[in-house]
């Protein structure tokens, strides 16, 4: 072994140590809020406030119990809220993948008049903050026709307020998702379509059998990027849902902010509602990283 190669190995090892040290430090910084949240969820309010400012805030020491978790279940119908959020999120993401990918397909693969204009309009909507259109949207959804169950009969009525579909349908079409699908589909060779057309395939078959199977990373990215906003919906359900049994988990957060905020219960509740997100992300970590890398999107 020469001196040069020895020195090189030492340098490489040092570099590795530094890089792992830096990464560990970053991991600790990013983990601190989560650790604080979980640890605080086990402490009474007085101890949470007393421990702030000291390392004890991050340690499960002192008067530790699950009382805050019991308090959460006493204060809010947590199971119901969780069910609602899961239902709303799954359907929003699921329908969103179908609708947005189809729109992206039409915009990237099919030739029709006004295509560029439509794509520009879709992209233009990205710069309009949701908050600015929220109140007009409330007005419009309150006028939309719907079917309601009354006495076992399906009846025709107006107004989408206070329902599941008012929390799902407006968010199925997503400008960013359409743009992303459009861009990704554009990278798939058009000769595949032409070959399929010669073989007699219609556009839906080309979408379903050829383009969609080749766009796995785009589907994964859109699924992940639309999952979080759907799960975190707060303002919209607040405005359109009055019935407690239809509220999602994020609205439930407000239940704890009374004149005296129950900080321990806040931490327990946030721990509980963060858990599903953590599970989803940890389960699909590899798919997430690879899809983001493949589609060139960063959050």
């Amino acid at each position: 072994m020469t001196t040069d190669s020895l020195t090189e190995r030492v340098v490489l090892r040092r570099r590795k140590v530094w890089s792992y040290t830096a990464m560990s430090a970053l991991a600790v910084i990013f983990l601190f809020p989560l650790v604080f949240m979980v640890v605080s969820s086990l402490k009474p309010d007085s101890q949470i406030l007393a421990d702030i400012g000291s390392p004890q805030a991050f340690l499960p020491v002192g008067d530790i119990s699950l009382d805050n978790y019991f308090g959460v279940f006493d204060r809010v119908p947590f199971g119901r809220f969780l069910f609602n959020s899961v239902l709303i999120t799954v359907l929003t993401v699921g329908f969103g993948l179908i609708v947005n990918s189809m729109a992206g397909f039409a915009l990237s693969r099919m030739r029709w008049r006004g295509r560029s204009l439509v794509l520009s309009l879709v992209i233009a909507t990205l710069i309009v903050p949701f908050e600015t259109v929220a109140v007009p949207m409330v007005y419009w959804v309150s006028k939309l026709p719907t079917l309601v169950m009354e006495g076992g009969m399906v009846k025709y009525d107006f107004g989408w307020l206070n329902s599941y579909h008012v929390q799902i349908v407006p968010f199925i079409a997503n400008a960013f998702a359409i743009f992303l699908f459009t861009q990704y589909f554009s990278t798939i060779p058009k000769s595949l379509d032409e070959a399929a057309r010669i073989d007699g395939a219609n556009w839906f078959t080309i979408y379903r059998r050829i383009v969609a199977p080749l766009a796995g990373p785009a589907f994964a990215t859109v699924a992940i990027l639309t999952f979080l906003p759907a799960w975190n919906q707060y303002l919209w359900p607040l405005m359109v849902v009055q019935q407690e049994s239809l509220r999602p988990v994020m609205v439930g957060m407000q239940y704890f902010f009374q004149l005296n905020t129950a900080w321990g219960e806040v931490m327990a509740y946030t721990s509980l509602i963060t858990l599903p997100i953590l599970i989803v992300f940890l389960s699909f970590q590899r798919a997430f990283v690879s899809s983001v890398a493949a589609s060139g999107v960063k959050g």
Partner: peptide
């Protein structure tokens, strides 16, 4: 009755008024 969390209540009222759906 329907109970709302306090921090979200005024927004819910304003939205309901916009939709002509006040209690």
């Amino acid at each position: 009755t329907e109970a709302f969390p306090q921090g979200a209540y005024n927004d819910a009222i304003v939205a309901a008024a916009a939709a002509n759906d006040l209690p």
